[in-house]
Simulated assay, not measured.
Amino acid sequence: MTDTTGILDEALQRLHTSGPERLGRLTNHAPMAVEALAAHGQSRAVHRWLDLYAPKLEEFPAPFEPVTDANWQAALGDPRRAADWIAYFGREIEARPWRDVLAEWWPRLLPGLYGSAAHPVIRVGHAVRTLEESEAEAGSGQAGSGGQAGSSGQAGSGQPGGVTEPRLAELAHGLGYWAARHLPLAGVAELPGAASAAGALDAVPPIANRADGGYPTRLGRVEGLPVWAASVDDPEEARRRLTELVRAATHRYATHGHGDETMLVHAATAPNAVLRALPALPRALWVPSLHAAWTASAAITAMYAPDEPVAYAAPGTFSAEEVFERAMAHGDEHVIKFADTALDVGDERALAAALRAVELSEPLV
């Protein structure tokens, strides 16, 4: 459900004066969380949540050197160039339809999906969902006669109807962050896997010294991952398998989330971001997207999964709306984003996993 009140646009404008990271390594989750709140009919809570999150925001970084069509390869993966990359994608999206920009850059960025715990692609997935739903509602006549744009104004004539400038700018921020934190994962051996996504995740071997080092250090210790869906070459089958992976990783959190209540969220939200982007991408990109998403989910599992699972039963039966309201009341950005993915999966076990995240995580206060 796309926000037609203008609140999401206001929140994005407010956030685009902040950088994509803080403390030089931690991701700014606010754009993703506010999009999730708005997508589930909680626009009224957006600014109140942002007020609580505001101490975690830092100023937008200074430019370093402009990114151009001639020098972009040298700038890929350079976090000093975050502002330059965001400006580059802002210019590109202003000049061309956003789907064209996404289709051109997706295969360039996909090999580096693993940087910053896959947060950049997750941010892109949220941005794409909003743009797709905005267009769909505008096309069906559901959007108000000006409510969606709010005070932000509609995007230029080069873009499809229904989108607004802050939502296009959010895609530019997400793509720019991805380019700046582009980090490939190479030299990983192929290990025996399983037929199902759940079985393949169970087969992921843990890295050595899991208790030592942050994300980049641990990622460097991923030496081998099980093979899963490697033979898929049909786009529709790739989408089906990606849906299966999101479901399996979400379900798994209920019994394995205690390994790291924050980082293991991304084993589900990263492939779900890729799944959300598929409808906006050429079908030829769906199969490589599946393979990259599997590698990300499996690598995060290798880095943070616990030694043993635990039994978990949800404390009662709750509707999807009630589960998301509990996540919103808890306030942690990862809990909100994980609940958003759990509602996409939609079954009882996924909702139980979302409640497990509420139970394990520290609330935002």
Score class of each variant (00 low, 15 high):
1 M>A: 13
2 T>A: 05
3 D>F: 05
4 T>A: 02
6 G>D: 02
9 D>C: 15
10 E>Y: 08
14 R>P: 14
21 E>L: 13
24 G>A: 05
24 G>M: 01
27 T>S: 15
31 P>Q: 01
33 A>V: 13
34 V>N: 00
34 V>G: 02
42 Q>L: 07
42 Q>S: 14
42 Q>N: 10
43 S>R: 03
44 R>C: 10
46 V>R: 03
47 H>R: 12
47 H>K: 12
48 R>H: 07
48 R>S: 13
50 L>D: 04
58 E>D: 08
58 E>H: 06
58 E>C: 05
65 E>Y: 03
69 D>F: 12
69 D>S: 14
71 N>A: 03
73 Q>I: 15
77 G>Q: 01
77 G>I: 03
78 D>H: 09
80 R>I: 14
84 D>Y: 06
87 A>G: 07
93 I>V: 11
93 I>W: 00
99 R>A: 12
101 V>F: 00
101 V>T: 06
104 E>K: 05
106 W>G: 01
110 L>W: 01
110 L>E: 01
112 G>P: 12
119 H>S: 11
121 V>W: 03
122 I>V: 14
122 I>Y: 05
123 R>Y: 15
127 A>V: 11
129 R>P: 08
138 A>T: 11
138 A>S: 14
138 A>P: 11
144 G>N: 08
145 S>A: 15
146 G>N: 09
147 G>M: 13
151 S>F: 05
159 Q>K: 03
161 G>H: 08
162 G>E: 03
167 R>K: 13
169 A>E: 06
174 G>F: 10
176 G>Q: 10
177 Y>H: 09
177 Y>V: 04
182 H>E: 07
183 L>M: 10
186 A>C: 14
187 G>Q: 10
189 A>V: 06
190 E>H: 13
191 L>E: 14
195 A>N: 11
202 D>L: 10
205 P>G: 07
205 P>C: 12
207 I>N: 01
212 D>Q: 09
213 G>V: 02
226 P>R: 00
232 V>W: 00
232 V>T: 04
234 D>L: 09
237 E>K: 11
239 R>H: 02
244 E>C: 04
244 E>W: 09
248 A>D: 06
251 H>V: 07
251 H>G: 12
252 R>Y: 08
253 Y>P: 04
255 T>C: 04
256 H>M: 11
258 H>T: 13
265 V>P: 02
267 A>T: 12
268 A>W: 15
271 P>L: 00
276 R>F: 02
277 A>V: 08
280 A>Q: 04
285 L>P: 08
292 A>W: 02
293 A>Q: 00
296 A>F: 03
299 A>W: 07
303 M>C: 09
307 D>R: 14
310 V>P: 06
316 G>H: 06
316 G>F: 11
320 A>R: 05
323 V>R: 00
325 E>T: 15
325 E>M: 12
331 G>W: 07
334 H>V: 11
341 T>E: 03
342 A>D: 08
344 D>A: 15
344 D>T: 15
346 G>P: 14
351 L>A: 03
352 A>Q: 10
358 V>Y: 04
359 E>L: 08
360 L>S: 04
365 V>N: 09
